[in-house]
Amino acid sequence: MMTLDSTFLLDIRYATTNNFTGEQMYDCGKCYLREPVAELLIEAHKEFKKAGYRIKLFDCYRPRPIQYKLWESVPDPRYVARPWKGSVHNRGGAVDLTLVDSTGKELEMGTPYDFFGERAHQDFKDLPADILQHRSLLTETLRKYHFSPIRTEWWHFDYNKNKLYPLSDLVWDCN
């Protein structure tokens, strides 16, 4: 993504220990997506930038061997896709993200990234008005660019233009 638009912020959590497993999953933090997915995310990012925000990416394409490791930590299909079926992340068609303001500070979304509980669910409404507005801005803008949220995570969006890409085990080169 960064070669297509360097104004995205990257915080690829699975390349660090700052994730729900507490283990580094990726050798380095990179964001890969299928070309049509990346192009539409760039268009959404342009709209956010006009409003004074930027996208911060937490995860993009995820090799399926990593999906197995995540499943070992949290074998709950509400939060981690079954690796034998694969996820949209394993196909290069999903992003985990949030919005930041002009100074790079994350907008408050009610929970941190990868919080597994009802408070992170899309339909959880017992939140302050500003948090509900932030979530709505994120979701409604991304919907315009063919990204759909999942019910249990405010940060996860799947590309939904009727293209199911093949599963991939490819692990990227960090050089």
Rank of each mutant, 00 (worst) to 15 (best):
W172Q: 15
G110C: 11
L132M: 05
F147I: 15
C174Y: 09
R135A: 01
K161V: 13
W172Y: 15
S148M: 13
N160R: 14
T16P: 08
D114S: 12
C174W: 11
K46W: 11
F116P: 05
F115D: 03
L142P: 01
I55G: 02
K163D: 15
Y68D: 06
P149I: 11
A120S: 14
F124Y: 15
W155L: 14
W71V: 00
D5Q: 09
N160Y: 10
L33A: 01
Y32K: 11
Q67V: 02
K49R: 06
E108T: 08
W154G: 03
K50L: 08
K56A: 02
G86I: 03
P36I: 12
P36F: 12
S87F: 10
R119L: 02
C31H: 08
F115Q: 05
I55T: 09
K85T: 14
S168E: 07
A81Q: 02
D101A: 04
C31L: 06
L142F: 01
Y79Q: 10
Y159P: 00
L167M: 06
K163C: 10
D173R: 10
D96E: 06
T103D: 13
M1H: 04
K50V: 05
G117T: 01
D76L: 04
E47V: 12
Y53H: 03
F157D: 04
H45R: 05
N162P: 07
P112Y: 10
G29T: 01
V88G: 00
T17N: 08
Y32D: 06
H146N: 12
P166G: 14
E140Y: 11
C31G: 07
R143P: 01
S73C: 04
A38L: 07
K161W: 12
L170T: 12
S168P: 08
L57T: 02
T152I: 08
D126H: 10
